[in-house]
Amino acid sequence: MSNSYYFTIIGTKDNPLYELEFSSFKNIPTTLPSNYIPGKSQFSQSTKELLPFIANSSLDIIEDLQFSTNLLNLGKIDQFYGLNINGYITQGSIKFIICYDSTKDESNSIKQFFQEINELYSKVLLNPFYNVNDAIISPDFDLKVKQLARKYL
């Protein structure tokens, strides 16, 4: 297990707004590959190709769950090809999805991460030049997400 994560924000039309791949700064694997760079995801090439599709397929479950729960954080919603998938849905139906290959249950830290991201996303929405469902290209947002990832995961 390489403790790698794939985080994505998906809009209301199934369109990705933001995506990031990273690996844990806390749980560094004992056997390190030769080209190891801290924070760089260790997903294999074949998994990497599939990650957007896996995230997309979990939207079915998020949309199903949104009618049966009041919570924004949906916890672990699915497991696919050895990857765990956690989801979060904002009041505006924007979905946060994280796919990770850790064996540990990280629901708590992911929940905190999602909550902070939601705050960050709300700030993006406040920007008068930003429209809902547009891709988030702000470098500040990217930096802050990376900092949050480092803090919680």
Partner: peptide, 16 residues
């Protein structure tokens, strides 16, 4: 049909 079907997951299986 939001939340009532699993077409996206099905597409993923077909893709695999």
């Amino acid at each position: 049909s939001i939340g009532m079907t699993k077409f996206r997951k099905s597409s993923l299986y077909y893709l695999l």
